[in-house]
Each structure stands twice: as C-alpha cells, then as structure tokens.
Amino acid sequence: MTERRMTELRTERLTLRPWRDADLAPWAAMNADPEVREFLGEPLTREQSDASVAAFQADFAERGYGWWAVEVTATGEFIGFAGLDDVDDDLPFTGVEIGWRLARSAWGHGYATEAARAVLAFGFETVGLAEILAVTTATNVRSQAVMARIGMTRDPADDFDDPDFPEGPLRPNVLYRLRKP
C-alpha cells in the first residue's frame, strides 16, 4: 500500500494542515471541554485524544483524506479539525462524511463554514466523490446551520438513531447530503 502525503488546504483565513506535536495539548483541552463535547459524548482523556490524532494520521496516509488540523493563518493558532471520514459500519447508510470540531474560542467566526467549503471542494475535485454526507445529533442546531450554509440538504426520512448511544438526547441523529455539483 502506498502512503499518501497529506495535502494542505488554504482558505481566506484558515490553513487545514497535517497535525503537529504542538497540536496535541490544545486538541486534548478541546476534547476535555464538556461544551465542545456536548453532542459527541463524554469528554476524552489525554490518552484518548492523542490516540485519535494518531488514527487521523494513519487514515490520511492510507486513504488520501481524513481530518486536518485547522489553524488561523494570520496567527498560527490551532483551533480544531475539519475533514472527511468514511461512515461508520454500524450506521444505516454508507459513504463519506464531512465534519468539523472547533475550540469554543473559535465559535461564531464562520470558521466551520469556511473550512467545510474547502473540504467539500477537496472531496469533490480531488478525491472524486459523487456525494458527501454530514451527520449530527437532532439537537445540534449549530452544526445543522453550517450544513445548510454549505448547501447540504436534509430529508427527515433519512433520520436515524445512532447505535453508539443509549436512549437519550445523543441517540436521535439527522443526515444531510450534498451531491457533486
């Protein structure tokens, strides 16, 4: 298997780039923040957080797409991640999904939308995907707003219960789709 080099993406204000050792501490702080994890489940330990970065790097090397670290270009500040991932096997659909997670200090600046647009372009133009999906809990209206802003649409018939969560607010999920223009 050939290892692929992680492509760097740039937007007006952001750089989506390979992960660095310096990202591990702020990434762990994000993953320990209950507000950042509100729609994702329990906060992660430092070990779990570090392991996620190792998995992101391995996925990218294998597939040529995955989760980029996101930084504000002007300052070099690490603010989270954005990217593409294969849909989990236990979900009632298949494909590639887009996602993002930002530190609270980066919320409300349009960064998620900006990063997501760059990721969509990469997915359609470079990876050659015909469709990109997005999934979130039914109660995560902020992420659903980003999905709508980037042109994705939701069909309530596609809504599902996430088998990774017990009964409760994180179980009902929504599915958004965007076909290649």
Rank of each mutant, 00 (worst) to 15 (best):
D85V: 10
I79S: 00
A82P: 04
W107P: 01
R104Y: 14
E47K: 08
L44T: 04
D59N: 15
A28K: 02
A121E: 10
R37A: 02
Q144K: 11
D164R: 14
L84T: 03
P156Y: 02
D59G: 13
T139Q: 12
G168Y: 09
R46Q: 15
W107T: 13
P166A: 01
M147A: 12
A145Y: 09
A121R: 15
L175W: 07
G83W: 01
R17K: 01
N31H: 11
R17F: 00
G110C: 10
Y176W: 15
Q57P: 06
G168S: 11
F160L: 15
L16I: 09
T45E: 12
R142C: 02
E47M: 11
A55F: 04
E167Q: 09
F165Q: 07
T7Q: 10
T136R: 01
A61N: 06
E8P: 00
F39S: 04
G110A: 12
A54T: 12
T139N: 04
N173I: 05
G95N: 06
L129Y: 11
T139Y: 02
V127Y: 10
L14M: 06
Y65E: 03
F39R: 00
L129C: 03
L40F: 04
D159R: 13
V135W: 08
F78H: 13
A55Y: 07
A54Y: 05
E35Y: 10
G76H: 07
P34Y: 09
A112G: 09
G66N: 08
D155L: 02
R179L: 13
R101M: 04
E42M: 08
L14Q: 01
L44S: 07
R37H: 05
A25Y: 13
E167F: 14
R10P: 02
T126M: 08
V36W: 11
V141N: 03
F124N: 00
E125F: 04
R179V: 15
G83A: 04
M152W: 00
A148Y: 00
E167S: 09
E71N: 01
A145V: 14
F160D: 12
T15P: 00
P156M: 06
D89N: 05
E114A: 06
L44C: 07
V141Q: 10
F165I: 10
M152A: 06
D158G: 08
A118Q: 07
D59Y: 08
E125S: 13
R177H: 05
A29C: 01
A28I: 03
A58L: 05
Y176A: 11
R63L: 15
E131Y: 06
G110E: 12
W19Q: 05
A58D: 11
P92C: 01
F165C: 05
S52R: 14
P172K: 05
T45K: 08
D21V: 12
W67P: 00
I132L: 12
D85I: 11
D86L: 15
A121K: 12
R17Y: 03
M6Q: 13
V96S: 13
